[in-house]
Design a protein around this nucleic acid. Sequence first.
DNA 1: CTGAAAGCGCTAACAC
DNA 2: GTGTTAGCGCTTTCAG
Lengths: 360, 360
Amino acid sequence: MGDPRGTGRSDGRGTSAARPKRPTMSDVAARVGVSQALVSLVFRNQPGASADTRRRVFQAAEELGYRPDTAAQLLRRTRSRQLGVLFTMRQPHDVGIVEALYPAARKHGYTLVLNAMVDTRDERQAMDELLGLRCEAIITIGTTFERHHPATGVGGPSIVEINPLTRAAGTDVVRTAERNGIRQAVDHLVAQGHRAIAHVDGGAMPAADERRRGYRAAMRRHGLADHIQVHPGDYTEESGARAARDLLARGELPTAVIAGNDRCAHGLLGTFLRAGVHVPEDVSIVGYDDSQLARLSFIDLTSVRQDAAEAAERAVRAAVERLDEGRTADRDIVLDPTLVVRGSTGPARTPSAPDGDLLR
Amino acid sequence: MGDPRGTGRSDGRGTSAARPKRPTMSDVAARVGVSQALVSLVFRNQPGASADTRRRVFQAAEELGYRPDTAAQLLRRTRSRQLGVLFTMRQPHDVGIVEALYPAARKHGYTLVLNAMVDTRDERQAMDELLGLRCEAIITIGTTFERHHPATGVGGPSIVEINPLTRAAGTDVVRTAERNGIRQAVDHLVAQGHRAIAHVDGGAMPAADERRRGYRAAMRRHGLADHIQVHPGDYTEESGARAARDLLARGELPTAVIAGNDRCAHGLLGTFLRAGVHVPEDVSIVGYDDSQLARLSFIDLTSVRQDAAEAAERAVRAAVERLDEGRTADRDIVLDPTLVVRGSTGPARTPSAPDGDLLR
DNA sequence: CTGAAAGCGCTAACAC
DNA sequence: GTGTTAGCGCTTTCAG
């Protein structure tokens, strides 16, 4: 049963036994005494083999250490049933979506192929890898899809974008009703007596534009147009910290700040606390994403929640509709977020309290 | 040359034109008027084709939108030159390593196949996927490698473990000299006059054991055995927060705390700040990993740095040595960490100051 | 229920 | 320089 090629082959593999060839379906078939095609059938759970044969096939496979070869399957199969995922690992919310994609894909009989976008590899290259692996659809998360990618044309893969930077034609989009989320945040703050509510935005990052607009609209609707105050940011902690320092330097703090996302809120919170500004007594802070960060006991951030599991499920559904159900029209799927109220927001400082009093 | 199946086929693909077959090498060859093998040669950058032919091949490929099929390459090639990566996305330091693996692998002519371990997919299943894709080696990051995996035997893939939970025979390990790192932290604190130095450990997490031991050893070496104080933790923010609350409840704070990792340190820091305990005036805090977290301006954590890029490079090197250079003996690669001093550590409170004074 | 045969798109070894 | 040939390990179709 052992590898008969013997030792000492000068194949550059050193002195250990020559690497035994990995067993194939034919090896399993030979061992059981059936045809290779039948083994294939058994492994695919197709009808056409007796219960006893199945048992013997599995046992032989086990004994041989057989493992189906994905490359061969992929090559021969009509459909790959693979979904490519383009993501970055830097935004915590994106990580949650990636995790949620696994069960969603499996539920529909698809497999995931992950491809991280890091600085050194551009989206184009990552896409190429995914397409080379015959992915039938690509799901991008929070990235700006390069719409002029050569593969985008007719016959190319379906593209589903989760929280894209800009919407491209010919793709499905799963996004959050950002304005709705921000509106809930503003409503909540106004109900607590806040009027001077600032916003630290996300600059050119995904959804930042909508959030900024939503903030402005909500403020106006409450008659607080005069209090509109947008600070530049980019969804990072440091941008929140910078905004906090600006605010502190200016000596007049708003009573509440809505951050572009949780990381930014974290920067605001941390910087305020370091400066002796109490949250929420002096300033209320609202985040966005309801990430793990927001839930930490010592951060305890009121935040706008986007359900990662639902976004993942909807994205997979969208791909399945195109792939298996013949849909061709673009879909725009908008998910409603909900505000999760935690300890970082509270009643506004009484208007009568002099602002200067605040930096004790 | 076009798909002659025409429109209106009731193949469940809706009314759009029938999905055009993806072009193959033969299509490119036909268009140029050369053999398919020659096209293959051109794409592999092998000698044997004239400059003019190369140009025409690339042009035809471009026009056709041709893209090499990875499955077919993988199937036919002798070597896959693929490295599988098993990782979790929950530890920031691990994310840094994954990112650093891309350039390291490319440098040695290898491609990465990522596989995230999330709650719903166990390591075994993730491994199987990687092996099905013909990965020649598996690099695991911060996970406990299941040593009884059936593929582990002779002829299986090489395994390289980065910061594993426990070391398994038959694998290469890239790890940090944890004791060294902790010793540097203790030395630094002692030099600043600290004596009551506590440690919040990482429980059963990777490397936690070594760090705990290193802490005890370093304390003893400084004659501070009486001050040894280990609090249970698990590398999460909440475990740091819990330790901080315990410490506060006990009414007597050490002058410094060495956390099991940065996330834990973050929990300590945040909880202390919330409670009005100043860092580093009242308590110094040291983290571990020197993650992005540690570098944030409002966290500014003294931390033990493990170089992610070096760990990644060494891991790939280890795989390459086995795969391309015939090494068969196990390697244990130990990387020396360095302490990065930032603002979370400072001189110890003067011993004369009554402890009770501390919670102002 | 089982088997034989024909490839999927490409690479590698060889002939021209 | 270029073309020919023979598969890689599997799925799929068609005959028993």
